[in-house]
Amino acid sequence: MITAFVVFTIAAIGTYAIRLSGVFLLGGDRELPPRVRKALSLVAPAAMAAIVANSLLLNEGEWRAFGAWHLAALVAVGVALWKRSMGWTLAAGVVAFAALLLAGL
């Protein structure tokens, strides 16, 4: 518990420094170099994909048995590509997952 508290606190300080970085170092005519901007633009997709893969396809380091998780996630990805909307994707994923659990998968 103490470890978690310390980790959250240090991560919070580091994250605040990241949040301050652009606001205080840039501004005016100074801009990010294109290479840096590009790498930073890929952090969100790469990090989110890593979390999705680790939490959906694996379960505590082992392959997750095929079932409701995979099927509901497929529904969500399909709706996300079709509607391009966060709200629709969440709703479709929750409904599909609930239906699959109720169906006993």
């Binding site: 980790v7 991560a11 580091g14 994250t15 301050l20 970085s21 652009g22 930073l40 990090a47």
Partner: peptide
């Protein structure tokens, strides 16, 4: 745990730059 969190949050530097 800390390094992983900071790598994930590095994207906020981009927003910070956009908001400068």
């Amino acid at each position: 745990a800390i390094v992983t969190a900071l790598v994930i949050n590095a994207r906020l530097a981009l927003y910070s730059a956009s908001l400068a």
